[in-house]
Design a protein around this nucleic acid. Sequence first.
DNA 1: TGTATGTTTGAGAGCGCTCTCAGGAGGAGG
DNA 2: CCTCCTCCTGAGAGCGCTCTCAAACATACA
Lengths: 335, 335
Amino acid sequence: MARTLDDLAELSGVSRATVSRVINGGPVSAATRRRVLEVIEGTNYRPNLAARSLASGRTGVVGVVMHVDPPLLFEDSYFVALLHGVSDVLADRASGMMLWLGNRSKEETLNRILGTGLMDGVIVTADNLDDALVDGLLASDLPTVLIGHRRSDLTASYVDVDNVGASDTITTHLIEIGRTRIGHITGRRGTVAGEDRLSGYLRAMRRAGLKTDDLIVEGDFNRPSGLSGGEILLDREVDAIFCANDAMASGALQSVRARGLSVPEDVALAGFDDLPFAAELDPPLSTIRQGVHAQGSESAKALLSLLQNPEGGPRRVLLPTELVIRQSTVGVLSG
Amino acid sequence: MARTLDDLAELSGVSRATVSRVINGGPVSAATRRRVLEVIEGTNYRPNLAARSLASGRTGVVGVVMHVDPPLLFEDSYFVALLHGVSDVLADRASGMMLWLGNRSKEETLNRILGTGLMDGVIVTADNLDDALVDGLLASDLPTVLIGHRRSDLTASYVDVDNVGASDTITTHLIEIGRTRIGHITGRRGTVAGEDRLSGYLRAMRRAGLKTDDLIVEGDFNRPSGLSGGEILLDREVDAIFCANDAMASGALQSVRARGLSVPEDVALAGFDDLPFAAELDPPLSTIRQGVHAQGSESAKALLSLLQNPEGGPRRVLLPTELVIRQSTVGVLSG
DNA sequence: TGTATGTTTGAGAGCGCTCTCAGGAGGAGG
DNA sequence: CCTCCTCCTGAGAGCGCTCTCAAACATACA
C-alpha cells in the first residue's frame, strides 16, 4: 500500500514531481498520466494534507465561525440551518470544514483561528454592528466572507438579505390593510438585523405620513421580550404590531390573546424569518421569508470563489426575501 | 513580527530546538525559558499546525462525525445539543474541531476523514446497529469514540446511556400506577435506541406478567408515526402508551385528544429524551431524561483521554438517566 | 542541417516543525 | 586533578508535499 508520493513514483517508474502533477492536474503526457493513474487506482493512496499545506499553503479546509452563546445556538434553528447550507456546498468542493463556536472568548477564538494555519478561508456570522472577532478576521490575511453583516467598509465579502427593504415591505403591507397605529418591537440593539429592520419600518411609516412617536419598543429577539413589548404597545392602543422576528411575534400574540383581543381583527401581527413554527401559530403568522439555508450555501460559494480568484475583488451577495401573507394580518383567506 | 521558530530563536539568542522545547514544555533551564517566553510575549508568534502535524503526526484537531440526513439534523435538537457538549470540552483542550455531516455518501465521508490526516481522532454518532462508516472508522487506525452505540465487539470506546434499563424503569412506573394494557410505539427499527428501548419495555412487562401480544406498534422516532401508532393502540383499548421518544409521544397525545379521551385518566402517556418541549405539553409529559449535552462532553473527554494514553484500553462510559414524572402519568400533582 | 519553439520530465530546494543524538558545562566523588 | 554523571543545549535529519529551474527531447521552420 502506497503511503507517499515517493512510493507512487517508484511503483510507476516516474519521479515524485510527475506524480504530483498527475494528482494536481499539471501538464503531463497522456501516456504517463494513464500509467500513474493506474498505479494510484490500485493503491488507495491519500495525499497528506498537512504536508500539502506546508508546501503550498493550501489545505482545502474552510472554517465556519459562529461565535454565539451556545444556548442561543442550541435554541435557534437559524444557525443550524445556516450550517446546513454551508456544509451542503462545502461537501462537494472543499476537503473539510472546521467549526468554531462561541465557547471561548472572542480574542481567544480569533487567535486560535489565525494560529492553526490549517484553513484556506473562513465564513463568519456577523450579527453585531461591532465585533472584535469579525474585525480581526477582516484585518488578517485570511480570506473571509461575512454572513448577515454588510460592513460599511466596502472591502469585505458578505452575504446578506436586505433587512431594510423587507421590513419596509411588510410594514407597507400593514399600512395597505388599513392600519395606522402600527407598533414595532425591535430586535436587540446593536445588531445589524435589529437596526436595519427598525430603519425599514421607519422608512415605510414616514413615507405613509404615519406617526411613530410612542410606537417603538425595544426587544431582544427573544420571545419574552415580545410578550412584554406587546403589553406596552397594547396599552398605547395600536392596531398592528410588527416584530423584528417570529419568536417575538409569538410572544406578542400571547399578549394580545391575554387581553381577549383577536388577531387580526383588533390587532394585526407580523414577524420576520418565517421559521417553521410561524405557519403553525394560531392564527398563522404573516412574516418575511428569508432563505437561511441559501444564506449558508451562498456564503460558501462566495468563499470558494474568493479562494479561486482572490483578485476578483470582494464578493457581495444580497439575497431576496419574500413577503408571506397569512391570517395574522388578513384574517380568513377566502378560498 | 516573528513568524517561525527560527525567528524566535534568533531574537532570543538560542537554537530553534530550545524554543521548541519552551513551547512544548521540554527540559529547559529556568533562565532560558524566561528569556524565550519574554520574546514570545512581544511577538504574537503562532505555531504552524501543518508543520507540527507533519513533523510529529499530531495536530490537536478532533473530528466530529454526525452522518445523519441534514433534515434530521435540522429538526432535531438532539444533535445540536450533542455538538454543544462536545465543543464545550474541546474548546479548552483541543486546537480545533472538524465537522463531518451527512451530505456525502458514507463511503465518501469515510475516505475523506481518513484521507485528511489532519485529525488526531474522531467522535462519531452511531445510531444504527450496522453502519459502514462506523465500522470503517473502527477498523482504521484513527482513535475513535462512539456516541450512542454500544458495540458488541468490546474493543471500541463509546459513550452511551442504558436504554434498556431506562425503558424498563419508565414501563415499570406505568405498571406501578396500575396500568395493565400498556402499548409501546417503537423507534425506528435497526437503530440501537429503538431496539434497546423495546427490550426494556418487554423486560418490564414480562416481569410483571403482562401480555404484550397486540400492544407493540412500529414507529420511526418522528411525530407522525406517534400519531398513527397512537390511533392503532387506542383501537386496541390500551390504558397507557410508552413512546420510544418525546416527538412520537406528542403525536400520540394528539391521537388521544382526537378521540375525546383524557390523559392520564383514560390513557397514561410516557416518552423518552426529555427534550425542552416535553415539559410544555398539555399535560406535561412523563419521560426519561438523558443528558444529551453530557453525552457530547463525555465523549470528548473519552477521546482526549484516549489520545493521551492510547494504551489504556477502550474507554466505556454509560451515563445515568433519570425518570421524570409529570402529569401525563400521574394527573395533577398534589402540592 | 541549424536554429527557434514547445512539451515533458527530473532534480532539488524548501515549507516550519519535532526529535534524536551528541557535545559542553558544571558538580560530585575518588 | 581526573573521571563520572547529570543537566542543558545545538546541530541536523527528516515529515510528505509543491514548485521552480533547467535539462532532455520533439517538432517546426528556414
